[in-house]
Simulated scan of single mutants.
Amino acid sequence: MADVFLQGGIDLRLAAFTAGRVILEGVLTAIFLIRTICGNICSNKFPQTGRRTMANHERAANTDQAEMVLSKATIRAADHFGLSHTALSEILGLSEPSISRMRKGQYLLKRGRKEFELAQMFVRTFRSLDAITGGDDASAQSWLLAENSALQARPIDLMKTIRGLVATANYVDSRRATI
């Protein structure tokens, strides 16, 4: 491909994008920790007090809502991609019955667990690919099932491993933001 800058087999734009994203995530994590610590010191609210404050209750409600939203978004993305319960279970590392219960709203992805993080990456991949294809599900499905020379495999096969899911997400992110 003429639009890819390769240096020793590495797409330099993808490498720069990934490095920038890692630095940004580190900075955002540091800001979150500083705000949390300063907020606890200034308001005299420490976790060891055991009191359930209104802020803690709201935080718990927001966590529940995030779990519900991500669970629904994951199912919808899988539907747009035309993935079976088996394929989605292999991507997220869940059992097929768990995927079935998630579809019915009886199972939510839990924050802090590996499947939650994998679902975030899966939805990120969907959003980027959806933007690239202009919302055309048939094009997205075709791309997932076709051999990709840049990724050196079919994206649907790569997404079944953590490394492959991250590589696929980074690849579609880099293609979405080409200049």
Rank of each mutant, 00 (worst) to 15 (best):
L145V: 04
V166C: 08
K114D: 09
C42F: 14
T29W: 12
R127T: 11
D130M: 05
L28S: 07
E90V: 00
S95I: 00
R176E: 13
F81Y: 09
D130A: 07
V4G: 02
E96G: 06
R101V: 00
S128C: 11
G50W: 00
Y107K: 10
S142Q: 13
R124A: 13
M54R: 09
S142M: 12
L151N: 05
D136Q: 11
S84R: 09
F122M: 05
N62T: 00
D137C: 09
K104W: 01
L109T: 03
L108P: 01
A140R: 08
R52L: 14
S128P: 04
G135P: 05
A177G: 10
A2L: 04
A15R: 09
A119Y: 01
I99M: 08
A153G: 06
A169R: 06
R176H: 09
L83T: 01
V123H: 09
I31E: 15
I75V: 10
S174Y: 06
D137P: 02
K110P: 01
Q120I: 03
Y171P: 03
A131Y: 00
L28V: 01
I37C: 10
S128V: 02
A140Q: 06
A78Q: 00
G26R: 14
R59T: 05
L165E: 04
K160M: 10
F46G: 15
I91K: 03
W143D: 02
A30G: 01
L28W: 05
R154I: 02
C38Y: 11
V172F: 08
A87R: 10
H85P: 04
S98W: 00
R35C: 07
I31G: 13
Q141L: 02
I179E: 12
R13L: 11
G26W: 04
L144N: 04
A153R: 09
A61Q: 12
A2W: 00
L92G: 01
I91W: 03
F46Q: 12
S84T: 15
K110S: 10
M68S: 11
L108N: 04
R13S: 08
G112M: 09
F116A: 09
